[in-house]
Amino acid sequence: MSLVKSHYKSPLGWLELSTSEGFLYQISFLDSRPKPLLEITNTSHKKIKSELDEYFRGEHKQFTLPLKPEGTNFQQRVWNELQQIPFGCVTNYGELAKRLGDVKKVRAVGRANGQNPIPIIIPCHRVIGVNNNLVGYAGGISRKKFLLKHEGALLL
């Protein structure tokens, strides 16, 4: 498999989008302006950028992109469950573990959440600590806070 990469300037900073054969595999937060890529304009990247534009303008609440995150069966289950959290809502790690059938797997759920390769679209930012604390986000707490405010989720 050969990934095709492109960059997207979002309100959160630069993102790197990785696709292959029409599927989105990964979104990575970049800490600085990326060096220009030989941009390959394809339908997948245009659709991803269009849906991200709509999301950040507040016009889009559910993504329709074909996703193919790579991970274990457990990670896939967690990431599928994340996609069931409605726009503007939050849950906590314990509730997520409970919905997956084992309240004892809170840490494993947290680890899988943190390893989500497609943030924003697979909304791992919608998972908060049990006391409504903004904990754990691979993109940084400031990005998590931005996304939750953008979606109108209740914050402290």
Score class of each variant (00 low, 15 high):
Q75W: 02
G13Y: 14
A97E: 06
Y55S: 06
L12R: 08
F87D: 09
L52V: 04
G129T: 03
R107D: 15
I40V: 13
I27G: 02
H150F: 08
K49D: 03
S18H: 06
D102Y: 08
S6W: 09
M1L: 05
P36A: 09
K144V: 03
E70Q: 10
S50N: 11
G94Q: 15
N73S: 12
I27F: 12
E39H: 10
E95M: 15
K61V: 07
R57T: 03
K105R: 15
Q62K: 15
S20Q: 14
K46S: 03
T91M: 12
I141P: 00
H7E: 08
K5M: 01
K98R: 15
G94H: 15
P69A: 06
K149D: 00
Y55W: 13
L148P: 01
Q26T: 06
L15V: 11
S28H: 13
G114V: 09
M1C: 01
V135S: 14
F56K: 04
D31L: 15
R57A: 14
F56R: 05
R111L: 14
V130A: 10
Y8V: 03
S18C: 12
L3K: 06
I40A: 05
Y137E: 07
N73W: 13
V127D: 01
I141Q: 10
I118F: 07
E39Q: 10
F146N: 01
K49P: 01
I128Y: 08
L156P: 14
L67P: 01
P119G: 12
K68S: 06
K68L: 11
R126Q: 06
Y8N: 03
E51F: 00
V4W: 03
E51I: 00
G136A: 08
I120E: 00
S2C: 09
Q83Y: 00
A138I: 10
N132F: 13
L30C: 14
